[in-house]
Design a protein around this nucleic acid. Structure first.
Lengths: 221, 221
DNA sequence: AAATGTATTAAACAATTGTTCAAAAATAAT
DNA sequence: ATTATTTTTGAACAATTGTTTAATACATTT
């Protein structure tokens, strides 16, 4: 890293922190804060989260949050960028594989996406809120992990659509796929709080959808 | 009523500015605060909204907010309950109509729901956030407008499903319907900010989906 | 052991928050 | 016109916020 870069040297105090050597094997404080921030931000959102909440979750003095991450906002941006990557980067690889058919991609995405959401069910709502009022930094992360129009999957679909071998418009197909995969997780509190279903049934349904959604999508094709 | 209630269009940035100026001078202070609260809460959420923000939006002294509504939280509960009603009560009537077939209900719900969301595109995300950390009062409003398991529509579907005249499980059908209708609005900032599509294309696609979603759903049946 | 650098703590900071309250202004009732 | 009631205002409040800073504890290097 360019320690001596004059641009960085302007703010020497901040840079000392930013370029701090992590040779210490006991860097658990920074890690603990980051993972605590992930938990609290995801649970309560940016505005409802305090620096002291994060420190309490990490069981550390609250000054350490600013010591390691300089500000609440910078820490949030970090967490949000990770969340976006977690949400999108997985399906990005699948959809850009040149050796699989569109049908195979759909099968893989459905299983992978739902498996991921079963582990991180709050991620979609968290990211959607973050995107709504996003900084330039976050928008950049979005573009880099964008998968909706630039993927090889969509390219394959557009080719089929041009030949008349695909009924549905590619963008509608992607919308339907993402919608059916994601919204149940976003809206699950509504189902659970009203007593419509319980958590056990919800999980079972999501397991079913791993194989059913590909079938429904293929009916549209 | 319906003067200051959720007046905003799909292009929330432009419309928010346009409608912010022309406030009804004849509206009472209480009404002005309520409609201002609707706008600010829906835009920024509960925690990021201050009583002074609401008063500024209503162009009134900030003490009047507590004078008329006793507390920020009570005002928020009021707005949230209205939002839930706005979101769910419409489709509730359609789905409980004993004189229409399931197919007819699907047609009506798709048009009505998308028309509503084109006028109030921020409503789903706002309500989903509200449900996630909801009070008993709000949960009650949810149950009363619950439509997912108690509706006549689902009853019709379960009867067909029992007779083997419906392939898809009723609950999955409802999930798919609501998902395909709603998620594009929740996730639209992601599409817009990445430059995948612009607002004009988005609106056009939503118009298409009014008639296409019923077709796709019927393929699953 | 001494010196140096890093990690952690506690205290303090100004700014902002929701809420209250008494006085003032406006309106209604007598 | 005088009184009574309601509406509006501005100031004040205690609590909480993110951030900074100086002092302390710990670790590593010399």
């Amino acid at each position: 890293m360019e320690n001596g870069s004059y641009i960085c040297a302007v703010n020497s105090i901040d840079m000392a922190k930013a370029t701090r050597k992590k040779k210490d094997p006991d860097a658990s404080a920074e890690e603990k804060i980051l993972s605590a921030a992930r938990a609290v931000f995801t649970r309560n959102g940016y505005a409802a989260t305090t620096v002291r909440d994060i420190a309490a979750e990490a069981d550390l003095n609250f000054s350490l949050v600013n010591y390691y991450f300089r500000s609440k906002e910078k820490l949030y941006d970090l967490v949000m960028k990770d969340a976006i990557r977690q949400l999108l980067s997985g399906i990005k690889d699948v959809l850009n594989d040149v050796h699989t058919t569109p049908e195979e991609k759909i099968d893989l995405v459905c299983v992978g996406w739902i498996d991921m959401l079963l582990v991180h069910p709050d991620l979609p709502l968290f990211v959607m809120n973050g995107v709504a009022n996003s900084s330039n930094d976050i928008t950049k992360e979005l573009v880099e992990n964008n998968v909706f129009l630039t993927s090889y999957f969509v390219k394959q679909l557009m080719e089929l659509h041009g030949k008349g071998k695909l009924k549905i418009a590619p963008l509608h197909l992607v919308m339907n796929l993402v919608s059916m995969l994601t919204l149940p997780f976003v809206a699950r509190h509504l189902l659970l709080k009203t007593g419509a279903i319980d958590m056990k049934i919800f999980k079972a349904m999501m397991e079913e959808r791993k194989t059913q959604i590909p079938g429904w999508i293929k009916l549209m094709m």
